[in-house]
Computed example of a mutant assay.
Amino acid sequence: MSITTSPSRTKVSIALLICESLIPLIGTEHGDQPKIFEDMMRKSFPKSQLSLDALDDVDYLTMDSYDVVHKMEYPSEEQIDGYDAVMCSGSAANAYADNVEWIRKLIAFTVHLARDHPRVKIFGFCFGHQIISLALGGTCVYNNGNWEIGPTKICLTDVGRVYLG
């Protein structure tokens, strides 16, 4: 992600594509998805890139959210070029359900991003990474009815242990 730094400021601009409403319990405790993602992103900046003043500076991160399910809203062409990244949230929907209009539109938008805006990074969370895979010509297959949510224990390969510790 391209990050512009000054002596006390780091600036990143992200478009968040919301693909699901939160269950009420999570929303009540943690806020809506834009707030959860923004909090997560703010906490992820390496401390070496931020002064203590910048940590509280609301200007170092801009995150705009778009409801791609109910409103089918997306950033305009002009807005896309102003973003460092586009993030696609998770969803209980099936990414491979190509008969669902909002999913078709989301895949087409992701194809457009990758093809026509290569400077803008694309990130996906769960459902979102499946959409990116489909948009880039990959596959997404049914998981025998097993829906994974929350932390899941995994066994890392030797390569995975090198990268993830």
Rank of each mutant, 00 (worst) to 15 (best):
M1C: 11
M1R: 13
M1I: 15
S2P: 08
S2I: 15
I3G: 04
I3A: 11
I3V: 15
T4A: 08
T5R: 13
S6P: 04
S6D: 05
R9T: 06
T10G: 03
T10L: 08
K11Q: 13
V12P: 02
L16T: 04
I18L: 05
I18P: 07
C19E: 03
C19N: 08
E20I: 03
L22P: 13
I23G: 07
I23Y: 12
I26C: 06
G27R: 10
T28I: 14
T28H: 05
T28K: 07
E29N: 10
E29M: 10
H30A: 05
H30F: 13
G31L: 01
G31D: 04
D32K: 02
F37Q: 00
M41V: 12
F45P: 05
P46V: 09
P46C: 07
K47G: 07
S48D: 06
Q49C: 07
D53M: 11
A54N: 08
A54I: 05
L55E: 12
D56H: 11
D57Y: 02
D57N: 10
V58H: 08
D59L: 12
D59N: 13
D59K: 15
Y60W: 10
Y60M: 10
L61A: 04
M63F: 00
M63H: 03
S65V: 06
Y66H: 02
Y66A: 01
D67S: 09
V68R: 00
V69H: 01
V69D: 00
K71N: 08
M72H: 05
M72S: 09
E73I: 10
Y74Q: 01
P75V: 06
E77Q: 10
D81V: 15
G82Q: 14
G82S: 11
V86E: 01
V86Y: 02
M87R: 02
M87I: 07
A92V: 12
N94I: 03
N94Y: 10
N94K: 13
A95I: 06
A97S: 15
D98G: 15
V100L: 14
E101M: 07
W102H: 12
L106Y: 02
L106T: 12
I107F: 03
T110N: 12
V111F: 01
H112Q: 11
H112T: 08
H112V: 03
L113S: 02
A114F: 11
R115Y: 01
V120T: 05
K121Q: 13
F123N: 02
G124N: 04
G124V: 05
G124W: 03
G128E: 00
H129A: 07
I131R: 01
I131S: 00
S133P: 00
S133F: 02
S133G: 12
A135H: 05
G138S: 10
G138F: 08
G138T: 06
T139H: 08
T139C: 05
V141D: 12
Y142K: 10
Y142H: 14
Y142G: 09
N143S: 14
N143I: 00
G145Q: 09
G145H: 04
I149V: 08
K153G: 07
I154C: 12
C155H: 13
C155S: 15
C155R: 15
L156V: 14
D158I: 14
D158W: 11
G160M: 14
V162D: 10
Y163F: 15
